[in-house]
Amino acid sequence: MNNIPLIPVLLLGAVLFCLGILAVITKRHAIVVLMGIELIFNAANLNLVAFNRHQPDLMQGQVFSVFVMVIAAAESAVALAIILKVYSYFKTVNLDQIRHETDV
Rank of each mutant, 00 (worst) to 15 (best):
F17R: 02
P56W: 10
I7H: 08
M59G: 09
A74N: 03
L34Q: 04
C18M: 15
L95V: 08
L11R: 02
A23Y: 00
G61F: 00
I21K: 05
I31L: 15
R99F: 13
A14S: 15
Q62V: 07
R28P: 00
A77K: 01
Q55W: 14
Y87W: 09
A79R: 00
S65M: 09
H29E: 14
F17S: 00
I7R: 05
E101Y: 07
G61A: 05
K85R: 12
Y89T: 02
Q62K: 11
F67Y: 13
H100E: 12
A79K: 03
N47P: 04
V104T: 14
L16C: 15
G61Q: 05
Q62I: 01
R53P: 01
L12E: 03
L19G: 03
V9N: 04
G13C: 08
N2Q: 12
H100Y: 13
F64I: 12
F64D: 09
H54R: 10
V24I: 14
G20E: 01
E75W: 11
Q97G: 12
L10G: 02
S76G: 13
P56R: 09
V63E: 12
T102E: 07
S88C: 06
H100R: 08
T26D: 09
M35W: 01
I25T: 11
L11F: 13
I83E: 03
L11Q: 10
Q62T: 11
V15K: 08
E101A: 10
A50I: 08
L6M: 13
I98L: 04
M59D: 09
L12H: 04
C18S: 14
A50P: 04
L19D: 06
A43V: 01
I40F: 02
Y87A: 01
N2I: 13
L80A: 01
I21V: 13
Y87S: 03
V70Q: 04
Y89V: 00
V104P: 06
L12Y: 04
H100K: 07
P5N: 11
D96M: 01
P56Y: 04
P8M: 10
R53N: 14
N47D: 08
I98H: 04
N47C: 12
F51K: 04
M59Y: 12
I7S: 11
T92P: 06
L46M: 11
V32N: 07
N45R: 12
Q55A: 10
V15S: 13
A50H: 07
R53M: 14
E75Y: 11
I25L: 15
F51D: 06
I7N: 10
E75D: 08
L22M: 14
L19Q: 06
I83P: 00
L22K: 06
L84D: 01
V49T: 13
K91N: 08
R53V: 13
K85I: 05
F64Y: 07
V104K: 10
E75K: 04
V24G: 04
R28Y: 11
F41V: 09
N42F: 14
I82M: 07
